[in-house]
Simulated assay, not measured.
Amino acid sequence: MMVAKKFTVDLNKALVFQVGHLGEAYQEWVHQPIVSKEGPRFFKNDFLELLTRTVWWAIPTIWLPVVCWSLETSFHLGQSLSEIALLVLAGIFIWTLIEYILHRFLFHIKTKSYWANTAHYLLHGCHHKHPMDGLRLVFPPAVAAILCIPFWGLAKLLAKPTAAPALFGGGLLGYVIYDCTHYYLHHGRPSRNPAKHLKRYHMNHHFRIQTMGFGITSSMWDGVFRTLPPALKAWTDSPTLY
């Protein structure tokens, strides 16, 4: 009886259309990180390859003006500054729950078919395989813009028309804080808490227990939904992680 040969990913070639062939072995492969600042090539096509790369500062540059516009819209619709401040805080709070849900249930979904593996690798698997790739750490603006559509729908569902823009703006601000924090936890050198604790917490998720510790900006929802990892071991920062 002939046994089929296991597929091997060639790291020297474009990866996206290779990883799907791993089948059930994909989950094990993608959670064995390669710690290197040099990111892999995703596509042979140069234009598609360019779309996968985003510098971290593009996130506040693009989205903070949208946040300000959203808050200004609610102000002109009659919301007071104190009401807007509360709506912003509510939006940030809601984002922390969305952040947790996306990370746990979408980004860490189990896949084994060709196209499911491929989609997962593009969405989040690439980050676990190459966690120090600084140009594929934050959401590409085009993807974030698509996600804004259901989030705007949620804001309209939860708040009256005059308050919905400010609530949406608060959630969007929460997203900006999340993406910038995520980048800093991978590439910064925090010396004080809470940033030092958050870095250790997140590196624990990448390198020790990848099925727990889904919070990025906070471990609050991990506590609520019982996905807190066991007590963290002392973490010795390695120069290879910067």
Rank of each mutant, 00 (worst) to 15 (best):
N117S: 14
Q79G: 02
A144I: 10
K37C: 03
E72P: 04
A166K: 01
A58I: 14
W95Q: 01
A231E: 13
L173S: 08
G215F: 12
E99W: 10
P190F: 01
F207N: 05
Y242F: 10
G20A: 08
L11Y: 02
A14P: 15
K156N: 14
I59F: 01
R208S: 10
N45I: 07
F107Y: 15
Q27D: 06
L232I: 06
G170L: 09
T73S: 01
F225P: 04
F43R: 02
G170F: 09
K156Y: 03
W56F: 14
N193P: 04
A144W: 10
V19I: 15
G134E: 15
Y121E: 08
V176C: 03
L97E: 05
F42H: 12
P40N: 13
T54A: 00
T54C: 04
A14E: 13
D46Q: 05
W56P: 15
H206K: 11
V3W: 07
W221S: 09
F151C: 03
S74N: 05
C126A: 15
F168S: 07
V143W: 12
S218F: 04
F47D: 00
I101R: 01
I209L: 14
G215M: 12
H103Y: 11
L232H: 13
A90V: 07
W63I: 00
S191K: 11
L154M: 14
V19E: 14
P140E: 08
H127K: 06
E49R: 13
P40T: 15
K233E: 15
K110G: 07
T181V: 10
T96I: 05
L228H: 07
H103S: 11
L97A: 15
H205C: 02
D46W: 09
P161N: 11
M220Q: 03
V35D: 09
H130V: 15
V35L: 13
L154S: 10
A163P: 06
H120E: 11
S238L: 05
Q79Y: 05
P194N: 01
E38N: 05
Q210C: 04
P131V: 14
H197D: 01
P141N: 03
L89F: 05
T211I: 01
M2T: 05
M1D: 12
G23P: 02
G215I: 09
W115T: 15
E24G: 11
K112A: 14
L198F: 08
K44Y: 11
S218N: 05
R136Y: 07
H130S: 14
T52L: 09
H21T: 03
F42M: 12
V143A: 15
A231H: 06
P229I: 07
M220A: 11
P194L: 00
V9Y: 13
G213V: 02
A116C: 04
T118P: 02
Y242E: 11
A163G: 10
T240V: 13
V30N: 09
V3S: 10
K6R: 08
P230C: 13
L86R: 00
D46H: 05
A155N: 04
N204I: 02
Y100C: 03
Y114A: 08
Y26A: 04
T73R: 05
W115C: 12
V16L: 08
I98T: 12
K13D: 05
H103L: 12
H31F: 07
F75E: 04
L147D: 00
G23W: 00
V35A: 04
